[in-house]
Amino acid sequence: MHYMLLIAESAEGFAERNSENAPAYWSGWMAYSAAIVEAGIFVSGAGLAGPETATVLRFDTKGQRVQDGPFIDSKEQVGGFFIIDVPNLDAALDWARKAPITRGGSVEVRPCLPPPPRD
């Protein structure tokens, strides 16, 4: 079963990336990714550039509009994601728990829908 771990970090968390703590910050995530790959459960994933680099294409009654900024204004912003292949929610939660988030944030764990049939 595939689960997405949607990783959100606080502004302080994002700030770590360019601070003197940056080496520790990045090595935490490198180690985490490596552990996921090593466990044989990695399906896909990526770290994302900061929310200030986001551009949103909005669909509403006025049609489509290109806008600046992440799509929701909140204390936490998506910083990356993993798709992992594990047997059940408890196993997915065990991996989510290991995320090296140190300055506040969250990991949303969501089952992926199974892929449509090939034919």
């Binding site: 079963m1 047997p87 059940n88 929610l89 408890d90 196993a91 764990v109 969501r110 089952p111």
Partner: peptide, 8 residues
């Protein structure tokens, strides 16, 4: 069912 909470 959907999130597969395990019966353990």
């Amino acid at each position: 069912r959907e999130a597969r909470i395990p019966f353990v």
